[in-house]
Amino acid sequence: MFHIIRNSLPILSVFLILSGCKSTEPANTLDVANTAEQTAPIIQGSCPRVSFREGTTYYRAYTRKGEGDPSKITYQSSLADATRSCTISGGQLNVSVFAAGRLLAGPQGKAGEVQLPIRVVVVDKKTKSVLYSELSTQVVSLIGPNLTAQFVFNDPNVIIPAGAGGETEVFIGFDSGPKS
Results as ranks from 00 to 15, higher is better:
residue 8 S to D: 07
residue 40 A to F: 10
residue 80 A to D: 12
residue 81 D to Q: 15
residue 89 S to A: 14
residue 160 I to W: 02
residue 95 V to Q: 03
residue 37 E to W: 05
residue 115 Q to P: 00
residue 145 P to N: 11
residue 59 Y to V: 03
residue 10 P to K: 05
residue 144 G to Y: 05
residue 106 G to R: 02
residue 83 T to E: 05
residue 35 T to V: 14
residue 107 P to I: 07
residue 128 K to A: 15
residue 177 G to S: 15
residue 175 D to F: 07
residue 138 Q to E: 14
residue 27 A to T: 08
residue 29 T to Q: 10
residue 73 I to Q: 00
residue 99 A to W: 04
residue 35 T to Y: 13
residue 133 S to H: 02
residue 97 V to E: 05
residue 28 N to Q: 09
residue 155 D to T: 01
residue 29 T to P: 00
residue 179 K to I: 10
residue 129 S to T: 14
residue 171 F to P: 01
residue 63 T to N: 10
residue 39 T to C: 06
residue 167 E to M: 12
residue 126 K to V: 10
residue 68 G to T: 08
residue 116 L to H: 05
residue 147 L to F: 02
residue 34 N to D: 10
residue 54 E to D: 14
residue 84 R to Q: 15
residue 82 A to S: 13
residue 155 D to W: 01
residue 118 I to T: 00
residue 111 A to H: 05
residue 156 P to N: 09
residue 77 S to E: 01
residue 45 G to T: 14
residue 33 A to Y: 06
residue 84 R to C: 09
residue 60 R to I: 08
residue 34 N to V: 05
residue 136 S to E: 04
residue 44 Q to A: 12
residue 106 G to W: 04
residue 81 D to N: 14
residue 80 A to N: 08
residue 155 D to Y: 01
residue 67 E to N: 12
residue 19 S to R: 06
residue 65 K to F: 13
residue 140 V to I: 12
residue 18 L to V: 11
residue 128 K to C: 06
residue 50 V to D: 03
residue 162 A to V: 09
residue 39 T to I: 12
residue 178 P to W: 05
residue 13 S to N: 03
